[in-house]
Simulated assay, not measured.
Amino acid sequence: MESADEVVYVVDDDGRVCEALAALLRANGRSVRAFNSGSDFLQAPLLDAVACVILDMRMPGMSGLEVQKLLASSSHIPVIFVTGRGDIPSTVLAMKGGAVDFLTKPIDEDALMRAIDAALAKARVIRRETADAAVLQARYQSLTPREQELLPLLARGLLNKQAAGILGITEYTVQVHRGRIMRKMGADSFATLVKQAGKLRLETPPTAASEA
Rank of each mutant, 00 (worst) to 15 (best):
L42Q: 00
P78N: 02
A133G: 07
A163E: 03
D188S: 15
E2S: 11
D101R: 06
L21G: 00
V100M: 01
S90K: 00
Q148Y: 10
S37P: 04
M1W: 09
A99N: 02
A72I: 05
A209V: 13
T207H: 09
A197W: 02
L120N: 05
A94I: 03
D40Y: 08
A121Y: 11
R58D: 14
S90F: 05
R180K: 15
I166C: 03
T207Y: 08
Q141W: 05
R127T: 14
R58C: 12
E147A: 12
E171C: 11
D12T: 08
P45N: 07
L65I: 13
K122I: 09
M57P: 00
R127K: 15
D110H: 10
G86P: 04
A20Y: 04
L151N: 02
A131S: 12
G157Q: 07
D117E: 15
H177V: 08
V174Q: 01
A22Y: 02
A212N: 13
D14G: 06
A191L: 14
A49T: 09
A94C: 03
D56K: 00
L151T: 01
G165F: 05
M59A: 02
R183E: 15
L151H: 01
R183H: 14
V79R: 00
M113F: 15
F81V: 04
R146F: 14
V67Q: 01
G84R: 06
D14E: 15
T170K: 06
N160R: 05
S37Q: 00
V125E: 09
E129T: 13
R201N: 15
D48R: 10
M1S: 14
C52F: 02
V174R: 02
A4H: 09
R183M: 13
V32I: 08
L25R: 02
A123V: 05
P145T: 10
D87H: 04
I54N: 04
I169D: 01
M113C: 11
Q148L: 09
A208S: 08
P45E: 10
Y140R: 11
A163D: 08
K96L: 08
T91G: 07
A22G: 09
D14R: 06
Q148V: 10
R85K: 12
A115W: 02
C52Q: 01
A209N: 11
L200M: 08
